[in-house]
Amino acid sequence: MKALAARRRHPAAIAILLMLGLLVTGFAYAAVAPQPAQAEASTAQDVAAGKQLFQANCASCHGVNAEGRATGNDDKVAGPALAGVGAAAVDFQMGTGRMPMRAPTVQAPRGEVQFTQEQIDQVGAYVASLAPGPAVPSEEDVDASQGDPAKGGELFRVNCAMCHNFAGSGGALTRGKYAPSLMDVEPKHIYEAMDTGPQSMPVFNDGNIAPEEKRDIIAFLKAVEETPNQGGHALGALGPVTEGWFAWFFGLGILIAAAVWLGQKSA
């Protein structure tokens, strides 16, 4: 301590103190400040690897530099420009198997995932490097156990049910497009879909639905998945159409069979 005290007037002391102060502040800020959404900061290698993957698998529709590509047929595009869609859009599209698209249909269906999560992250890093956009949400952002399913249910009915159906079973849109079923979708993909508005879906940014509210919606959807069917088999949770169908085919079928059986029983 004495040695330290003796050197307190050393010409380098101020510089060292300044350095220490900056370090402490820096670490403290790093600990408290909002985390960048990526779990691990993307490196230049990630971006480079992502660019390679992109050019090998995506460029045929989205253009070599993700600038988008027209088909030459009216104003139809083969793939839109990707600057600004963010890593979240990449993670959603590739992480649910929608991209690379298997065929040019009205809407990319959910499918088998073609890449490892690492590769998807690399492509995400490349696309995110083109222009700032929504990042992949953190674990905590999408943790269903921290959400309020009742509040989420209300938000879901107001914002989502008109396309995705009251139980998230999905619904039809125009000309063959559809809102897909939300059952068995990973929480982070639900979050990313709201954040980026894939395909026909509108964007629900943090101004429309705050991050905690997004988590509530995820909690609601997970609650729907986990709640047992109190009334018995749910018949697809599609509303009265399947109920009417069931009444005609099974209800009436069984009763007519019984009537025929009784009719044959003569006295």
Binding site: A161, M162, C163, F166, G239, P240
Partner: peptide
């Protein structure tokens, strides 16, 4: 009154 769900149908006899 504001929300509506996809698959809003009446029971079959009003279909």
């Amino acid at each position: 009154p504001s929300p509506v769900t996809a698959g809003s149908q009446p029971d079959w006899y009003m279909g």
